[in-house]
Design a protein around this nucleic acid. Structure first.
Lengths: 340, 340
DNA sequence: CTGAAAGCGCTTACAG
DNA sequence: CTGAAAGCGCTTACAG
């Protein structure tokens, strides 16, 4: 910067100011500085900047369960958008859940302006650490454990209701919910929306199988356990797509049931894979565009001013995408349909 | 640090030295400092450190084609390992390939000690920029365009040869290679190993279908184009797993062929999904553990000393995992087998 | 609107 | 082995 200043015959102060839109400089001066800077390929050193301003333009991103393809997708697209807004993304990844905290520690030493949590498993202990280090947390696609903090997610209850309506409208009467991680807000909300609407509309309370996690394997083993569910079943709503995909294969391989002939199955997320011919999964799309947009906007605000009032951003779910894992049921043989 | 020094009754210099293993301090002093530091939750400010040392302990990671599940997996596991070694990972992601350069620019302003390239599409222009900015590039699972730079990948030619041997040993005679991105070293090497070995062993030169990319969709459309391949075909080697998965579905949906009854198909990578019941893909595993270990080790070296002699790290491919997309061929009806 | 000066939190010759 | 001092590349009151 000193060199640039000399080159332009100005003081370092003036040059510095040219890089801050809100600083007071003659418009001509600013233009001249910026022009010469790009010519020379000069950029202010962000470390020096951070040292003084206490702002890093860094957003920390905590990821863990990347067996769910939903997250890598979100992670890269979000990163691209954040970079477009001039922020950089620093990653904290941990294979074992107990190492998340260590990864977060290291991350925090770089004083991120904020932290985006893309993991189901971040401990509230780690969250506290972030806040104490002055980095507010944005929870993407979930709520924080304590209900505080910033959140961006879709209206999962409404999503659950829509699935219930869809299944009931197409003639299903015996519903099952495949639950994933019980502590996850997404799981709870989808379940509530689905089960309550079913009851509202006069059906039996849907039975629930605990898959336990948001993974293919969990879904698969839940599929095997469909045999233990008492009574008939013709419509299944899974906590998300990857669970649904595992579930369907478990139910087919293990129990010899056909989907959708014996059983309709609906997922949640509309990950890319859901549209592949091997799965053709009926599912509810997440409003990803809107969710990411809201997240980036919130990030920019937080980078400017860390002390905003926490708020939850709820976005209506996307469309229900009808593919080949569901089909209408007729009730000619009401009493025996879908028996195994 | 000033506070810590005062607290301990030492000079800032001494405290500072305690944090550098190679610095000269009385062992007792160092211990005292480190102990008090953890008590107070103090860590040296990395920005200030970087400002002076010109080292950031940051590794930049360039990612782009995350439609291939191989990469997210590698990305997070690698990140976890690098963090374990005290380095932090900063991401550069671009949805559109032409925006990669911009993302890299932003990344470089944080002066990463090195850049790990997890993308097939990084321009050599961007590579130059990195090197000019003092950040050597490690190419993971590929070579750099100009053959310079550091590389860590498995012996793809050997992998290709093994697939050829496997197919030939199990009775296949009419081989096809499904090529992905033609400029990718992995693609070229796998193809060379496969095709040359086939010829060495007395078969016709395998025919090649150009899928064009390392994606599901590319594989799918290549599957549709199997109809145009002249002559019989009984064994197919796809550039990687995700292409193979797409290919199989294309060939089944579009042409009504059965895998493996009509056609054996082999992939490369052994991504998690390859083991799922819906795919059960026969494939060659990447020696991921070794590749990641080599990468982390190289990263640590480069962080210490940027000016190492570029070198390529070749690791033998992993095992061929036999699943359900391949089966032995008998030659009772040698002349007509696998005709369509 | 611009410049001189202090200072962000560290490291590292240099002197002892 | 330890401390005083300079300096890394910036920003920002303060004065003009």
């Amino acid at each position: 910067m000193k060199d640039l200043a000399k080159d332009l015959g100005m003081s370092v102060s003036t040059v510095s100011r040219a890089f801050y839109p809100e600083a007071i400089v003659a418009e001509k001066t600013r233009e001249a500085v910026l022009k010469r800077a790009t010519e020379l390929g000069y950029r202010p050193n962000p470390f020096a900047q951070s040292l003084i301003t206490k702002k890093s333009q860094i957003v920390g991103m905590v990821v863990s369960d990347l067996t769910n393809p939903f997250y890598p997708e979100v992670m890269t697209r979000l990163t691209a958008k954040l970079q477009g807004a001039g922020m950089n993304v620093m990653l904290a990844a941990a294979n074992e859940p107990d190492k998340t905290d260590e990864a977060v520690d290291l991350l925090l030493s770089y004083q991120p302006d904020l932290v985006i949590v893309l993991a189901v498993t971040l401990s509230s202990h780690a969250q506290e650490k972030c806040e104490k280090a002055g980095a507010p947390c944005i929870f993407f696609n979930r709520l924080s454990a304590d209900g505080l903090g910033f959140g961006v997610s879709c209206d999962n209850e409404e999503g659950g209701r829509r699935v219930a309506d869809f299944l009931i409208d197409s003639g299903h009467r015996d519903l099952v919910y495949i639950s994933a991680f019980p502590g996850a807000s997404t799981n709870v909300e989808r379940q509530n929306g689905f089960c309550r609407r079913a009851v509202e509309r006069g059906l039996e309370e849907p039975r629930v199988i605990e898959a336990g996690y948001f993974t293919y394997e969990a879904g698969y083993s839940a599929g095997l356990r469909m045999a233990d569910v008492p009574g008939p079943a013709d419509g299944v709503f899974c906590a998300n797509d990857i669970v649904a995909i595992g579930f369907i294969e478990g139910v087919q391989e293990g129990l010899g049931l056909r989907v959708p002939e014996d059983l309709s199955v609906v997922g949640f997320d509309d990950i890319t894979m859901a549209g592949w011919p091997s799965h053709k999964l009926t599912t509810i799309a997440q409003p990803l565009q809107e969710m990411m947009k809201a997240t980036v906007q919130l990030s920019v605000e937080l980078a400017r001013e860390r002390h905003l009032e926490p708020r939850i951003n709820r976005i209506p779910p996307g469309e229900l995408v009808q593919r080949s894992t569901t089909m209408p049921r007729s009730h000619a043989k009401e009493d025996t349909h879908a028996e195994r």
